[in-house]
Design a protein around this nucleic acid. Structure first.
Lengths: 246, 246
DNA sequence: TGAATGCAAATGTCAGACAATTTAAGCTCA
DNA sequence: TGAGCTTAAATTGTCTGACATTTGCATTCA
């Protein structure tokens, strides 16, 4: 049986796959130096530019880093969760914007994942993470804050909540869901009234976390989800009215 | 204030960032054709190989695709969730293997996220997804199955569960967590006895999903998590004994 | 000893050429 | 006219060779 799409891959793609597999399988370990571009071009029987294109592909995925100079070369990268965040967020954001994901679906995913962290976070959040949440709540209460800054602070609040679960794998997976929502959230105009309601819910969430009350955290998160969806629905309804004034 | 590491980026990295930003900001829309490599090298005042390295970087992130021929060129890619899975999984797998994430932490993240899907999946799973789960359960009951194949079937079962939530954003985020666990799971040797226990739990989960009983799904998932961690703990204890026979 | 210098190795960049592929226009012939 | 073939043009893929730049190390000289 043929594969569905056995495209005759470019040489640089083949070489990149070859090296990538070696890294994933563990044949090449972290900080190990790859052969020089000249050596690789000999090994794979291709020219140096082709090898370079392959290496750039891997560099784009943060699988390798390159260094110039006598002892330079390409080295297998140690990928930290910190390093992987931006790429995860970029991809998630593009996925949302390119796939006609409705606000409600994205919102549901985000709050479903956040609620999953509630119990862990209630049990484990550090004093520092709680302080971060309180700080963000205070920032949100400043009337001079722009809508974008309000959204950014909202994201910071929720990331502190997620980080409170003390599980880096969870934090990483959720970073995509939380941050990717920001462009969608930025479409909402936050009135003084709606800001007050959100801040109130944030405070209740922080209080419940401080008290270690997981079910209260989940409950308030659900209320926040409903309120956010209501705000979004209002925005879309108003837009439709303006665009299509029957 | 200086940035922490304002590395003098390579030209190809700069050009890639330039084009990437244009795509993310929406200046370049899906399926739009980029200028030819020759045009780009003129615009950016660099040579063609340099432009090509930049384009390969973008291709590695699935941001563009290239096509040869008269009407060919580089086109902005439509990134589907399907396309993004492999990269998400590769990155997640590497993150786990390179960051000394313990089995328990990864396992906790995975089952926490899966439990989050339980309620939605109990309400929305299609008959098709339920059938997939039953099929995988049957496959798992074949004694001739290798440990690797058993793990792969386990992953397929859990992905069907997650997909049952009917939220593509959730499915995408969880794919990383579920699939990235597989190399860790492969370290476990599944005895006939442990296989039976897992299959029993899988059946209970499928039954609860069929009945639309969310809390039962969550409960059985928690049992499965505990059992998995116990199996892993046994493996590690045995290894330690062999390695370090005091 | 220690600092300056030069060398060697490696990546970064450039220029030009040819190969391969694909489309579309043009041409031939029934 | 219309179908089929041929050719040309555009574009990416690859190669060759060269030079620039950066960096570590050995060497040399005060």
């Amino acid at each position: 049986m043929k594969k569905s799409a056995p495209k005759p891959a470019d040489l640089s793609a083949k070489i990149a796959k070859n090296i990538r597999d070696a890294i994933i399988s563990g044949a090449l370990i972290v900080d190990e130096r790859l052969p020089s571009e000249a050596d690789l071009s000999e090994q794979f029987n291709v020219s140096r530019p082709t090898v370079r294109e392959a290496l750039k592909r891997l560099a784009a995925q943060s699988l390798i880093r390159t260094q110039r100079g006598a002892t330079g070369g390409a080295f297998v990268n140690h990928i930290s969760f910190q390093d992987a965040y931006p790429q995860q967020i970029t991809t998630s954001t593009l996925l949302l914007s390119m796939n006609d994901v409705s606000f409600d679906v994205a919102c549901e995913a985000r709050y479903t994942l956040e609620r999953a962290c509630a119990a862990l976070s209630a049990a484990r959040r550090t004093a520092d993470q709680l302080a971060t949440m309180r700080t963000e709540i205070f920032r949100q209460s400043q009337p001079a804050l722009s809508d974008e800054a309000f959204c950014a602070s909202d994201v910071a609040f929720h990331r502190a909540l997620v980080d409170g679960a003390g599980n880096p794998v969870l934090s990483y997976q959720l970073a995509g869901a939380v941050e990717a929502m920001q462009p969608l959230m930025n479409m909402i105009t936050f009135t003084a009234r709606s800001r007050a309601a959100i801040i109130e819910l944030h405070s209740q969430i922080a209080d419940a976390l401080e008290a270690g009350n997981a079910s209260d955290v989940e409950r308030h998160l659900t209320e926040l989800e409903r309120y956010t969806q209501k705000l979004a629905a209002d925005v879309f309804a108003r837009r439709k009215t303006v665009k299509d004034p029957s």
